[in-house]
Design a protein around this nucleic acid. Structure first.
Lengths: 223, 223
DNA sequence: CGGTGTGAAGTTCTTCACAGCC
DNA sequence: GGCTGTGAAGAACTTCACACCG
């Protein structure tokens, strides 16, 4: 009575999901260090920049290889390259945005994706009056084109920017089209099959978890 | 050799932070159920909507009280009220946005905060040419006014929307001014004292953790 | 019955501590 | 001496399973 392997069909060495979640942070700090001209870094120094224990960093990295040198630390340039490779960041990824309201348009013209290798190559909207509109480098297409576009344009990532009530249906559609990675901006808790990854971007949830602590602090000291 | 209590100065019954992180999700689904006219819900039903086990929901709720009725479940309306109270969502919270570039302006006019009780009541920018500009209901003020505004306008939350290089200095300033809750949109790993909470909103990190799995899937089945 | 609340068991994740190497 | 890599120990979190209740 023990089904433990996450992520479905068990590949092999079982790397904890939390570890994967931390790798992009390491990549980011290492990139920053590299830009500062720093060539070698120890797990202690890295940990200080990230508020993470050195042991955790060493353990995390050990899942993927032996990247350091005893007595010295890690070569920044080498490590950042290896981690990018592990994460699949050594190539570009195409994404489609669904929903071109205020939020969707902001996402399409967000300048932070492209330099990181994420390209928004298509946009969709259910509203016929939006279809055909040119936004940045993409033309808005009708939802019916979704399946075709995903196949033709090698789209691996769906970005959901529709109002909450439409979010689950849109997500279902993306899943039907074979999408396995979804960045969801709608304030909902999406339901997806086990082999589909979802990351939710939801500032309100962030705020709501902080108010708990604010409230506690205030209660503790009078007003 | 054992410093374990999180959140600094140890209040009492030690509620795990992960539990706090899930509560807003419960609130959201419960609100939705209420709007659908559903009056009672079991931990199993709630769990299905959230992809969480019923046991976890019952355990999480048990940290805060006994809200259910055996054989029946939870009264939706009552539970949502209790959870909102626990999270401090039974009042409004004032926030200040720092940085009024493209992103900052989008945050100021984002319609999702206000109905949830989060009010953006002030905006700041270091660029003198932005100061004085009217954005939605707030007027952009210079950074020097930060301390005064936080005190006068009872601001508890700082929202950081400046470019990455300025983020840490701005966060330091907010902390100096006594802010204990920060919603950070800049792609950095902020360093803050233990009694300050930060939540990062960072779509690129979300994408970068999904590419790992995409890559794995592709490798597993040829191309 | 059906479903909660909860100690106890089980699992996952983090930290320790030290051998080994530069 | 300084720092990595890693089994082992420890802490945190999740799930089980059942007494108890409506």
């Amino acid at each position: 009575m023990k089904i433990s392997n996450p992520s479905g069909s068990g590949s092999g060495s079982a790397i904890p999901e939390v570890v994967i979640l931390r790798l992009p942070l390491y990549v980011r700090i290492l990139t920053q260090l590299r830009d500062e001209g720093i060539e070698v870094v120890s797990s202690r120094e890295l940990g200080e920049r990230l508020s993470v224990t050195p042991a955790q960093i060493r353990k995390d990295l050990s899942y993927f290889g032996r990247f350091g040198k005893q007595g010295r630390g890690y070569n920044v340039n080498y490590l950042v390259g290896e981690l990018r490779r592990v994460l699949g960041l050594d190539r570009d990824w195409n994404a489609a945005v669904v929903g071109v309201g205020r939020l969707g348009r902001a996402i399409i013209s967000y300048p932070g994706f492209s330099p990181e290798g994420f390209k928004v190559v298509a946009a969709f909207d259910a509203d016929p009056s939006q279809v055909g509109r040119q936004l940045d480098v993409v033309t808005v297409r009708p939802m019916e084109d979704l399946a075709k576009a995903i196949a033709e344009q090698k789209i691996d990532i769906g970005i959901v920017a529709v109002p909450a009530p439409q979010a689950q249906p849109v997500i279902n559609k993306l899943v039907e089209c074979g999408i396995k990675a979804i960045l969801n901006y709608a304030p909902v808790a999406p339901q997806v099959p086990g082999d589909v990854r979802v990351r939710n971007i939801d500032p309100v949830l962030g705020l709501q978890t902080m108010t708990y602590h604010l409230k506690m602090m205030k209660e503790r000291k009078g007003k």
